[in-house]
Simulated scan of single mutants.
Amino acid sequence: MINILFTGTAVVLLCFAAYWVRGRGGHRPTGTWAMAALLTSFASYAPAVERAVESVVPHVARLLSNTFTLMAATSVLAFLFQLNLERERAHRKIRLRVIALGISVAGMTAFFLAEQLTGRSPVLYACYVLVHISFLGYTAKDFLLQTWAQSRRSTRRSQRWGLRTTSVGCGFALVYAAYKLFALVSIGLGLGLVPDHARCSTPLTPVRCAFSVTAPAVAVLLIAVGLTLPALLWPLSRLRRRRWEQASFRALEPLWREVTAAVPEVVLDPGHAETGADTHDLDFHLHRRVIEINDGVLALRPYRRAAVRDAAAAEVARRGAADTPEGDAEVEAAVIAAAVDAKRAGLPLDGEEAPPAAGTRSRKGDLPAETAWLLLVADAYPRRPAREHAAATVGAAS
């Protein structure tokens, strides 16, 4: 079970590393090599790698996995520096971290070799752990603070959740660091609280395996997935956005035709108004359609009759839909329809002018909110009950 888990995870993350290294039309995103180093480092946890190196040098798998853990930590921090800091400052901090990594790995290697030559001395092992845990704990703390703070400032949902996933991974890294510190105290005081030779049968048994093996593996996995997630989800979110824009553009066409037929002067580009939206510029075309509908509604203000609005609102209230977005949209659709008819017939305003629709001011400048509102109006526009009831009521009143 544990072999399948770690080997499969290592293969998946190596595929992620290849994804990051692959150029995007000659361009690689910021932090490409840092991310590739991070993702590749997880391969050291695969049992196959451990068995291969142990067959050459006994007990060296521990040094290898610890080295790759520190490399992964440095890679993530380098990635964050490149994202959050100016280029020169980021490079300066990365150089210092790489130097610190080299010193730490050299120290760990020296203590490991001395430990092997002296019969695995507990004191030398404690020094080895101290070097490892000092570097890892300090780096993990920086990860947690930077990723969490950045996640609170991020406006993209995929990036926000990716950074939060990374923060959780940093939490697992701190759990691992705390366990190593506990083991260091146990060894230094000769308490024997942490057995050093027990094999892990599952990711959680014996209990120490949950802290010594599973915690760092989960930490690297979550950090890698969290930092890769935005890059993987961005194309999907863009595709979803384009589909929404295209569907909205088409759904607004009947309402747009009604309004612009009554006030054609609001059309910004009459020469291209009848052509379909370019799939590479859907945002522009949708934005223009929303503006033209709103401008048309504004131009129809002299024909918006308050009596029509009141009659439509009464009909909507009778059906229990008052004070709902759908109900408000149905009332607005009735008012617009009556205004379009009055404009076409050349009838001046008779009575009080109907006020703007509810929420008009709060939606101003917010394309998604304004589009969602107009979609409700466009959906209600062809439905005649409220409009016809309003017209009949107004006609009876006059």
Rank of each mutant, 00 (worst) to 15 (best):
M1W: 08
F6Y: 09
R24T: 12
R24Q: 07
H27A: 14
R28P: 08
T32R: 11
T32M: 13
W33T: 09
A34E: 06
M35W: 05
L39N: 11
T40F: 13
S41I: 04
A46T: 01
V56W: 07
V56Q: 08
V56T: 08
V57N: 03
H59F: 10
H59K: 12
V60E: 04
S65P: 02
F68N: 10
T74K: 04
S75L: 10
L77T: 12
A78Q: 03
N84E: 15
R87P: 02
R87V: 08
E88D: 15
R89L: 11
I94L: 06
L96I: 13
R97T: 15
V98N: 14
I99N: 06
I99C: 07
G102Q: 10
G102W: 05
G107Y: 04
M108N: 03
A110R: 07
Q116E: 12
Y125Q: 10
Y128E: 11
L130S: 15
H132K: 15
I133K: 15
A140V: 05
F143E: 03
Q146R: 11
Q150F: 09
S151V: 07
S154K: 07
T155S: 15
T155L: 14
R160T: 08
L163Q: 05
L163R: 02
T166E: 08
T166S: 09
V168H: 07
G169K: 01
G169F: 04
F172L: 15
A173L: 13
L174S: 09
K180Q: 15
F182N: 14
F182W: 14
G188H: 05
G190N: 10
L193C: 10
P195A: 08
P203R: 09
T205W: 12
C209Y: 11
A210Y: 13
F211E: 11
S212I: 14
S212N: 15
A215L: 14
A217Y: 06
A219F: 11
A219S: 15
L227Y: 06
P230K: 07
L233Y: 03
L236P: 08
S237K: 09
S237A: 15
R238N: 13
L239Y: 11
R240P: 01
R240H: 12
R241F: 07
A247I: 01
A262Y: 00
E265F: 04
E265T: 08
D269E: 13
A277R: 01
A277T: 00
L282G: 00
R288Q: 02
R289F: 00
V290L: 00
E292C: 00
G296V: 03
A299Y: 00
R305W: 06
R305I: 01
R309T: 04
D310Y: 06
A313C: 13
A314Y: 09
G320P: 03
A321I: 00
A322E: 06
E326T: 11
G327T: 05
A329N: 01
V331W: 05
A334K: 02
V340C: 02
L347M: 01
E353G: 04
P355S: 05
A358I: 10
R361T: 10
R363V: 00
D366H: 09
D366Y: 02
L367N: 03
L367M: 02
L367K: 00
P368R: 01
A380V: 03
P385R: 09
A390Q: 02
A391P: 06
A392L: 11
